[in-house]
Design a protein around this nucleic acid. Sequence first.
DNA 1: TTATGTGTACTATGTTAAGTGATACACTAA
DNA 2: TTAGTGTATCACTTAACATAGTACACATAA
Lengths: 136, 136
Amino acid sequence: MLQINERSLLPIYEQIVNQMKELIVKGVLREGDKVPSVRELSATLLINPNTVAKSYQELERQGVIATARGKGTFVCKPAASPGMERERGEQLREQLRRLIVEARHLGLTRESFAALIGEETERYWGESDADRSELK
Amino acid sequence: MLQINERSLLPIYEQIVNQMKELIVKGVLREGDKVPSVRELSATLLINPNTVAKSYQELERQGVIATARGKGTFVCKPAASPGMERERGEQLREQLRRLIVEARHLGLTRESFAALIGEETERYWGESDADRSELK
DNA sequence: TTATGTGTACTATGTTAAGTGATACACTAA
DNA sequence: TTAGTGTATCACTTAACATAGTACACATAA
């Protein structure tokens, strides 16, 4: 379900956060689904339970999942807190600007950049309901 | 010309790299222009010369600037090395994917996302020749 | 009740990267 | 020579990251 790249520059807990959000966007994980427990996921990925816990806490902070003591952790309905949305909206804009700067330095034309956007947008917005075979 | 945010999560040297590339894309810095010396910029920004040197070395690695001992550092013509382009092209795609995942988690529709792209693209591709008043 | 599986909290430790500070070297141009 | 470049190399501090071990609080089922 998840895969950790030891050689990545990204911290493990961030890799988990990113991949979990990607699975949700792809429809592999849906609202109300239970995600693996801290101990289970740590055993699967061969990492420390504390690292998994840190990932879940970050995901909960972002309003992506909700935890219930003794029960488990579950995917939330997409309802970001109002204050959070503004903050992350600005981050999104900033990320986009850096993306454009990179694209220009790579020599992309405005047209080829638009084509790239179109490709990837289609992948993530086109087929909202992916097959859930990855659930194991 | 440049501005460092001490509280940013980004390392100082990366902030310099990003902002320098942004100035070039905006046309404030152009091919052949001399950029501030390591010691001068470190004095202006109140940071260590080593940190500035690290930024310049990274920018040179990316083919953005060229350094000449005893002379100074200058903006290159946009000619990325062939191997570099493929590597960074993949990074660009990966950044774009994460951007889209973020956008969906923020609740953006496909239309509002496209609008955001359009806005920012216009800012960086629209007016290629910005006024150079920032040069001081 | 007991047993098990949840998330959480805490302390401690080792590794790595980032940044600083100081010094020295090599090159260029006036 | 003198001054201004980029570069190199130390040592040091700080913070982030991941790990390890232990313990606590809660929910559920036997």
